[in-house]
Design a protein around this nucleic acid. Sequence first.
DNA 1: TATTTACAGACCGCCGGTCGGTTTGCAAGG
DNA 2: CCTTGCAAACCGACCGGCGGTCTGTAAATA
Lengths: 241, 241
Amino acid sequence: MKSTTRKNMPPEERRAQLLGCAQMLFFSKGFEDTTIQDVLDMASVSKGGFYHHFKSKDELLFGVLDGMAEGVTWQMAVVASDEMSSALDLLHSFTHLRANYLREHDYPGQVEFFRVMNQDKNIVLLEHFKRRVRTGAMPVLIRIIQKGCDEGTFTVADVDTAAELILFLSNFIDLALLRAIEVRGSDTADHAAEKLQAAIDMQFLTLDRILGLPDGTTNFGWPEAVEATMETVPATPPSAN
Amino acid sequence: MKSTTRKNMPPEERRAQLLGCAQMLFFSKGFEDTTIQDVLDMASVSKGGFYHHFKSKDELLFGVLDGMAEGVTWQMAVVASDEMSSALDLLHSFTHLRANYLREHDYPGQVEFFRVMNQDKNIVLLEHFKRRVRTGAMPVLIRIIQKGCDEGTFTVADVDTAAELILFLSNFIDLALLRAIEVRGSDTADHAAEKLQAAIDMQFLTLDRILGLPDGTTNFGWPEAVEATMETVPATPPSAN
DNA sequence: TATTTACAGACCGCCGGTCGGTTTGCAAGG
DNA sequence: CCTTGCAAACCGACCGGCGGTCTGTAAATA
C-alpha cells in the first residue's frame, strides 16, 4: 500500500535541496522561527527522510553556513595565488572581494540579504557566518601583509595580529550600512548616507594607519557604492525588528 | 486547602530575585538551554507567579541585560561629568572603566564570566550585551572626543564616527583574550599570552592613530593585566563548547 | 468584608527529535 | 529475464519537554 507519492533522490541531491530550502527559510524567517516542518513542506520530504540526511537542526544550519562560506574562501584563495601583483594590489582585490562577494556569486539582492541577516532574530546566523569568513580569510590576508612587509610597503609589529585587526575592522561599516539601509526613502536618508560615507572613509584611513601607509592610500574610491546602496530599492517598510 | 508553603513578596523584590536567578542560570547554562522551569525551581516560584511579573522569556533576558548595562553606563556618566580633567585623562578613565567594569562592581570571577559569555550558546546574550554597552557608552565617548578636538589634542574627521569606531575597536582584544583564557595551563599558553599582549598593544596603537596622537600616547600600561588574566585559575577543563 | 494583588498548578499547542515500518534501487544467482 | 536479498532512502505516528495560558486560590489592603 503506497501512502503518498514518493521520490527517491541520490543523497547529495537531497542534501543540496534541503540546504537550499533551509537557506531561503533561514534568510526570510530567521533560524529560530524556521521549523523543521517548514523545510519539510518546502522540500516535500518527510521527517524521517530529513533526519536520514541531517542529524539535527543545528547541523542544517552549519551546512548552510559552510555553503555560503565556501564561495567566499574559494575566491580568496584565487586572490592569494597571484604571485605577480604587489601587496597593495592584492589588498585592493581583497577588500573589493570582501565587499562584493554577494553580488558576484549567486546571491541576488545583496542589500536585502544584508538587511535580513542583521535582524535581531538572525544574530546567531550572522555571527557564525562572520566567524567562518574571518577564519577563511585569515591565511589569505596574512600572506598579503607578510608580502607587503617583505616589500617594505607595510609596517606592522605583528603580522598575525594585524591581519586579525583588519578583518575585525572590516565589519565596522556594517553598523552604518545597516542604519543607512533601514532609513532608505525617509527624510533621514541623506544624513545616514553621509554617516555611511564617513564610516567608509574612516575605515580605510584606519587601514592605512594600521599598515603604516600614507593617509589615503587604500581608499580605493567607493563613493558610488553608497549611492548604489541607497538607490537599490525605493523604500523599506518598517520591519518588526 | 493550602497546597504548598507560599511566600508572597513585594513585586520589586520578587522581580529582582527572579532576575538574579535568571542571570546565574543564563551565565552557567546559556540562555537557550535555561528553562523557565529552571528559574522557577531556583526561585521556588510557580509558573503563574513568574508570568505575573514577566510576560515572556525574552523580557526576562532583557531585564538581565538592563541590569548589567545599568552599572556600566552609570559609571560612565560619572566619568563624563568630570569637567576639570583633560580629554586624554578622561579617555584614560574611560578605557580603564570599560576594561574593569566587571571587577569593580558586583561580579566576582570576571574571567569565568567572560569565558562563559563567549561560548557559542551565549552568542545572543553576548551580542545584545555588547550593543547595550555601546549605546550607553556612545554619548560619553562623543563628549570626550569632542572635548579633545576642542582642546586641539585630538584630530578626527567626524566625531560621531570616530566614537563609534573606537567602541567597535574596543572589542578587538576579546578574540585574543578568549583564546588566551581557553588555553590557560596548556603548553600553548605562553604563545597565546604573547599574542594577547600584541593585540592589546596594537589596539592602543590604533587608538592613537585614529585620534591623531603620537604613537604610544594611550597605551596606559597594561602588561600586568595579561599576567593577571592568565594566572587567575590554574587550569581550565575542556568545555563542551 | 470586598477588592485587588501575588501566586499556584493543571493544561495547551507546538517543536525538535525518535522509531518501527515501508518503499525503492540495484546487484547477484538462477 | 526474472527472482531474491539487502541496504539505502524515506515515511509518519509518536514522545518528552518547552514556552505560554488559564482558572482558581491565598494573602495583602482598605
